[in-house]
């Protein structure tokens, strides 16, 4: 965050795309909800856990990747465990952001791993295993969302900036506070995540896929089965809405007429009101 004057050149670039050649088609995600194994505690070997910790800390070389794929294709149980431990946390983080429900997120990750291991024989190595798993996870989450078909979609009304009939800003804008201390930073990040969760679903998903997961416009459009133009406009609206939701909490000089729009979730916090939309005279 910055305050005061700043170079006004077009410095914000599109989110860096983690483009990988899509030579490995995404395997179908079967609906395994009724056949998922019950959660149970199965002891793992300390040696396997240690090996996983080391491999998770350093990026794999091309030889490491080839070796891992070969072991997976041979059905090496230790290789499976390594892949789950190395990639599971990130996959779960993605699923939690997209699905918001913890149970759904864990089920989606389990489905994704099962689907991946079932189709490992077809993996040709055109991308990193981690990238391939990431795509499978995103796909699994989106399929779950499509099946849910939420009918109570929150409107974006009230989350976009307001203008006079002549098209000029009506709400006073203010710079945002400088980066807070580390403790405040944790609370700030929780506030931001809560605000993202408040966004209407199909705007939230685009923001997550583009700005957080780093997929490019074409990849996002393909996954969402929509056009690139739709992805672009939804991303912009999502960013605008998120900015409006965060503004009351971050502005340098609190607007006394504004209602705080987002609070860090607490057990008793049921809901948060939307961003301030009062329009003082221009």
């Amino acid at each position: 965050m910055t305050r005061g004057s700043e170079n006004t050149s077009r410095l914000l670039k599109s989110s860096p795309s983690r483009t990988q050649p899509r030579s490995n088609p995404l395997p179908p995600i079967p609906d395994t909800r009724r056949t998922l194994s019950p959660v149970s505690r199965t002891p793992t070997t300390p040696a396997t856990t240690a090996a996983s910790a080391v491999s998770a800390a350093t990026p794999p070389t091309a030889a490491d990747e080839r070796d891992l794929v070969a072991r997976l294709q041979k059905g090496d149980a230790a290789a499976y465990e390594q892949v789950v431990r190395d990639n599971g946390p990130r996959m779960l983080a993605v699923a939690r952001r997209i699905l918001t429900d913890e149970s759904d997120a864990q089920d989606a990750v389990q489905e994704a791993f099962l689907s991946a291991f079932r189709s490992i024989a077809k993996f040709e190595g055109g991308s990193l295993v981690s990238t391939w798993l990431h795509r499978i996870t995103v796909n699994a989450c989106l399929m779950r969302l499509r099946k849910k078909r939420r009918l109570d979609e929150v409107s974006l009304d009230g989350m976009l900036p307001g203008f006079s009939p002549e098209g000029y800003v009506t709400k006073p804008t203010d710079t945002w506070v400088d980066r807070p201390t580390s403790m405040e930073q944790a609370e700030l990040r929780a506030t931001v995540r809560a605000a993202i969760d408040k966004l209407p679903e199909h705007y939230r998903i685009v923001l997550i896929l583009r700005d957080i997961e780093g997929l490019d416009t074409a990849q996002t459009a393909s996954l969402l089965e929509t056009t690139e133009a739709a992805v672009k406009i939804r991303l912009h609206r999502a960013r605008q809405a998120l900015r409006e939701l965060l503004d009351p909490s971050l502005r340098d000089h609190p607007d006394p007429s504004a209602v705080p729009s987002v609070r860090v979730p607490s057990p008793k916090n049921q809901s948060a009101s939307q961003g301030a939309t009062k329009r003082p005279g221009a």
Binding site: R193, I212, R243
Partner: peptide, 20 residues
């Protein structure tokens, strides 16, 4: 106001990435 809006828009994108 638009200058401030650009700054906070860019900050929003950065915050979203850092927070997630």
């Amino acid at each position: 106001p638009c200058k401030t809006y650009v700054e906070t828009y860019r900050a929003t994108v950065q915050l979203a990435k850092e927070s997630c």
